[in-house]
Write a protein that binds this DNA or RNA. Structure first.
Lengths: 188, 188
DNA sequence: CCGATCATGTAACGGGTTACATGATTTC
DNA sequence: GAAATCATGTAACCCGTTACATGATCGG
């Protein structure tokens, strides 16, 4: 069968996760992905979706059956046992390192700019920092609202913990940005 | 000239940043990138480097002059005025949002797994959490060591702030992981 | 002189984005 | 019957990875 060492990549894993929880057809998944991650409404990205589904089918991780009863003829997807197993293997894997030395550097794009702030004058730096504080504040609001709606929907404690991570992360950023602002002002 | 809306992507921007600070040839940059980001010693990735340099030259952001004096014939790179300007434009840009709703979700791969922890039993979850705590602890040590060497090298306060962000980030993660562990244990 | 390092490059391939094509069904 | 939405797909392109090719020079 030979697909054991196909490294589980981002989108593929996302699909397996969705399909582990419910059976659906492509369009439905697309809608849900965008509802979960994107605020935009054109609901694009059929490209990756259908090509990845084709690949998953070829790898024997899913099956797709055309539903002729429903008029627009959708293809209902089912996880195969191999697919289920591969998802669980990923879930229980303890390793997720990829060898990058300072991964946090890429996690927050602002840091890339910060790297060169010595070439800017204090006012410009102050402006950029304040912009970031505002952005983090906006994200905090969004995350807190999301947390509330998650509680009302009754999501499990692990998923709630994820949004808590997001909140802590933004709070930490804001604190760090304020310290940075002080340090920047003090150094001239 | 027409290259104004070429969105500045990760590696391209990294190169412009390096070249803003010093003139160098490809091989030297490659060494430095790996020294800064990768612990491995095979020092691979010529592919992206030289193709990107070619692209930057075609875009008029750099010039390359072959140094015939030095024997292995290196090509010394210089940022053009357009290149310098594009770097500064990026540096002073206040926007870095890309529309992803919960970007932090992708920032920490563990969260993707956490999303499905309700399907695992408490011991397995505990195991995975402890592994993450250990990993964060290792990173913390590395970052703190890096901070010390940065101080000794006399890097500017903004670059020091970047490593401080990394340290805060890992400390926050560890705290969050411990809370998660408690919550996980309490829920059964 | 042999291996390590310096130095520059090409080619194949991968996931992901963007844009387009197609057609059925629902809604107004 | 026109517009919106449902539903599936292809094709071109881009960044980045992996692997390979080439050759000069330096240290043992």
């Amino acid at each position: 069968m030979m697909f054991e060492e196909l490294i589980s990549l981002a989108f593929k894993q996302l699909l397996l996760g969705y399909l582990f929880e419910f059976n659906a057809h492509g369009y439905k998944i697309m809608k849900k992905v965008h509802q979960d991650f994107y605020p935009a409404d054109p609901e694009i990205n059929e490209g990756l979706l259908y090509t990845t589904l084709k690949r998953l089918e070829a790898e024997g991780l899913i099956t797709r059956e055309t539903e002729t009863e429903d008029r627009p003829s959708r293809k209902v997807i089912h996880l195969t046992e191999a697919g289920r197993q591969q998802f669980l293997d990923w879930l229980m894997a303890a390793e997720d390192e990829d060898g990058v030395k300072f991964d946090f550097f890429y996690q927050y794009p602002f840091l890339e700019r910060c790297n060169y702030f010595k070439y800017l004058d204090t006012e410009q730096v102050e402006l950029l920092i304040n912009k970031q504080i505002a952005l983090s504040g906006q994200r905090l609001e969004r995350y807190r609202a999301a947390r509330e709606s998650m509680i009302q929907k009754g999501v499990d404690r692990f998923r709630l913990a994820i949004i808590d991570y997001g909140i802590s992360s933004e709070e930490m950023k804001i604190e760090w940005l304020k310290t940075l602002s002080e340090r920047s002002a003090a150094g001239c």
